[in-house]
Structure formats: structure tokens, C-alpha cells
Simulated scan of single mutants.
Amino acid sequence: MSGIALLLYFQGKYSDAKGTFVASLIAFFVGAASIIYNIEHWSLIKRSGVHFIIMLITIYPILLLSGWFTITSVFDAVKIFILFAFVGIILWSLFFILARIFSW
């Protein structure tokens, strides 16, 4: 995706390039952090908590700096955090259900 962002940048499509690059960063960090779920001797709660902290340290600042949201106050950053947490809970729940369905 970073390569696509670079091509878009050289074509003069700066806004598309930035959005694609931001999406590639998010995909990279989510993918890299998913390895945490392979640590079998940790409980699911510990793995989920560590994953959330890593997402909070990486993805949340990317969202704040992405330009995808208007941030004029701390309240705006809190609203983005709530959206970040809500989407995280939905995705975690979805993948938990899918893992249970397909693990037998």
C-alpha cells in the first residue's frame, strides 16, 4: 500500500496518497500486533489488553495526525478515542466469534 501511496503522490494526487499511506500504516501495525494472539501461555484477557495498549500507542496517534478528523479541542480527541475504542470492540468481537466458529 505504501508503494501505491508513492505512485499516487508522483501522479499529483496528494490527498489520495496521504490517505493510502495512513491506511498502510494502520494495516502494518494491526498486522504486526496480531502476533500477540499467538502467545498461548497468556490468557485471552492479557493478550487483548496488551493488543489494546499497542493499538492505543500506534493507531490512535495515527488517527489524530491523519487529517481524517477535525480536531479543534481536547473534546474532539476524546470523541476520536471513543470511536477508536468502539470500532476496536466491534472488530475484536467479530474476530472472536469467527475464531470460535472456525476453530473446531
Rank of each mutant, 00 (worst) to 15 (best):
W68C: 12
F52H: 04
I82S: 15
F102N: 13
I71H: 03
A27Y: 15
F28N: 00
I53T: 08
G31K: 07
L56E: 02
I54M: 00
Y37D: 06
R47M: 03
S103P: 13
A33C: 06
F69S: 08
F102D: 08
F96D: 10
D16G: 05
D76Q: 09
I57V: 15
F95S: 13
I82M: 08
S15R: 12
H51N: 07
F21S: 08
L44Y: 04
Y37E: 03
S103I: 15
S24V: 02
F10G: 05
G3P: 01
W104E: 06
L8K: 06
Y14M: 14
K18Y: 08
S103W: 07
A85R: 03
G19Q: 09
I80N: 09
G31I: 04
A99L: 06
A17P: 07
L8N: 05
F52G: 01
F75W: 13
I45Q: 13
G67M: 08
V74C: 10
K46E: 12
L6E: 12
A5K: 01
S73E: 10
V78I: 13
L56S: 02
I89V: 15
A17W: 05
P61Q: 01
F29G: 00
R100H: 10
H41D: 09
Y60N: 00
V74G: 11
Y14E: 15
S93D: 14
S15P: 07
G12Q: 08
I101Y: 11
P61T: 02
K13P: 05
A23N: 13
L91C: 09
S73Q: 05
G31D: 04
F28C: 05
F86R: 10
M1Q: 06
Y37N: 13
Q11G: 10
K79F: 09
M1E: 03
L91E: 10
T58C: 02
S24M: 05
T58G: 01
K18L: 15
I53L: 15
A85V: 11
T58E: 00
I35F: 11
I71Q: 03
L8F: 04
S66G: 03
I4Y: 02
T58L: 02
L56V: 02
L6A: 05
S66F: 01
F102L: 09
W104I: 11
R47T: 04
Y9W: 10
K13I: 07
Q11W: 07
A77V: 09
V78R: 06
F84S: 09
S43C: 03
